[in-house]
């Protein structure tokens, strides 16, 4: 990827971060907490995938590297999800 591509990604990341703060400043977190929660987390996930895919070049590595990363992520999510569920 050349610098133009990287710049485009950067602009997107910047915008999404701002959007997250806007959700809060607009008062959505107070009025509709879980909707705001979902929206903000989805934005974070999209940003993270963008950084991993383009800045860390996962898109161009063998799939196995992505699986390695997903392995760690799934382990962490399993721990978090199951532990939190166990006390609901």
């Amino acid at each position: 990827m050349d610098w133009k591509g990287y710049t485009a990604i950067y602009v997107v990341l910047f915008t999404f971060a701002t959007a997250q703060a806007v959700v809060e400043f607009a008062g959505l977190v107070d009025s509709a907490y879980w909707a705001a929660f979902a929206l903000i987390m989805v934005l974070s996930v999209v940003k993270a995938v963008g950084v991993a895919a383009y800045y860390q070049h996962l898109r161009w590595e063998p799939r196995a590297v992505t699986y390695l990363v997903l392995g760690g992520t799934v382990a962490a999510l399993a721990l978090t999800g199951a532990a939190a569920y166990s006390i609901l």
Partner: peptide
């Protein structure tokens, strides 16, 4: 190494959530 670091941070964030 980063894969293990993901679990490290994941466990920190998971602890917070818990």
């Amino acid at each position: 190494f980063l894969a293990s670091d993901i679990v490290l941070f994941g466990a920190f964030i998971g602890s917070y959530a818990f």
